[in-house]
């Protein structure tokens, strides 16, 4: 058996393989250590961090929908300081690339977080979440207007030398325009999609299921939308893409890479089968081998031929 080169081409971000786990679906990396060795992952994205601790939204925070999941966690997190003190040292020991996902409510928030995170050698990249649908101010507001998206990324860029990932919201009419905006703001990589804004109503109580009324949809239900957006962003900008949204097995991952994703990220599927990321890695390897590719990089964007 020929050894397949699994390393993806992601500006400045070096990963062993192209399979990452998504922000908010993997805690701070501790919960899945008893299932497998996290150093096998390409990378691990932590739960979104904000400058100050947040309690998040009230429960119910979850609602299952056909092949999908609505969540309104509302960025519950320990805050920047506590993250640096208690969580980062443990993440370092996992021996995998750590991507820190950050959210803010103002440009200053982003500037402050980016600067204090940048001094840490165990952080491989910063993912700027300008797309969270679950908080009232900031978050998605930055990610649905190209001008402010560019502004946030430009501010972050000014304060860090780390690879900068801009995470896009699918809740926009023109994803290409957003991709161009973050590219000119100075992003190195684009990740997409975050969750799609949705809701669910209990016909027995006649009230919304989620305490927060609306939430973000993820899982297989969003996959065709996510795939379409990856395809469009690949055509719109030159930046490498981390594709996500409903990826549940290696076939899904191949589909995203053919659409233009240099790497893929697994979120909701972890909840159903914690072994999904590892199964995807070996599936990708086998696909490449059977098709005669020597590197996964060769399949990126092939659907555009």
């Amino acid at each position: 058996m020929k050894k397949i080169d699994l390393t993806p081409q992601l500006t400045g971000l070096k990963l062993k393989n192209p399979v990452i786990v998504s922000s908010g679906t993997y805690g701070f990396g501790e919960e899945y250590v008893s299932y497998y060795d996290s150093s096998l992952l390409g990378g691990l994205t932590v739960k979104g961090i904000t400058p100050l601790p947040r309690l998040g939204n009230p429960v119910p925070r979850l609602a299952e929908t056909p092949s999908g999941l609505l969540n309104s966690v509302g960025l519950e997190n320990p805050g920047l300081e506590e993250f640096l003190r208690s969580y980062l040292p443990k993440l370092e020991k996992l021996n995998t690339a750590v991507i820190v996902n950050i959210s803010g409510f103002s440009l200053d928030d982003y500037a402050q977080m980016v600067s204090s995170l940048s001094g840490n050698s165990c952080i491989s990249a910063l993912e700027v979440n300008i797309s969270c649908p679950n908080i009232k101010h900031g978050g998605m507001a930055f990610g649905t207007n190209p001008h402010s998206a560019e502004e946030v990324i430009a501010v972050a860029r000014k304060h860090t030398g780390l690879p900068l990932i801009a995470k896009l919201s699918p809740n926009v009419t023109d994803i290409s325009e957003m991709a161009k905006a973050v590219a000119s703001g100075g992003a190195d990589i684009i990740s997409l999609i975050n969750t799609l804004l949705g809701m669910s109503i209990d016909i027995r109580t006649q009230k919304p299921v989620l305490a927060n009324t609306m939430g973000g949809l993820s899982g297989p239900a969003v996959r065709p939308v996510a795939l379409r957006m990856v395809y469009q962003v690949y055509q719109a900008v030159k930046l490498p893409i981390i594709g996500m949204g409903g990826i549940s097995n290696w076939q899904d991952a191949v589909e995203f890479m053919l659409a233009g994703a240099a790497a893929v990220s697994v979120g909701t599927a972890n909840f159903v089968n914690p072994m999904t990321p590892l199964e995807i890695i070996s599936g990708l390897e086998e696909y490449c081998e059977q098709r005669g590719y020597s590197s996964v990089r060769e399949i990126v964007g092939l659907a555009h031929r």
Partner: peptide
């Protein structure tokens, strides 16, 4: 509580408690 991951990774299933120092936490 409604659960997704079941292992503590998604923060979907929280309850609210008063910590030892009287602070509210999830």
């Amino acid at each position: 509580e409604r659960m997704a991951c079941g292992v503590g990774a998604c923060l979907g299933c929280v309850c609210t408690v008063r910590g030892e120092s009287g602070n509210v936490q999830r």
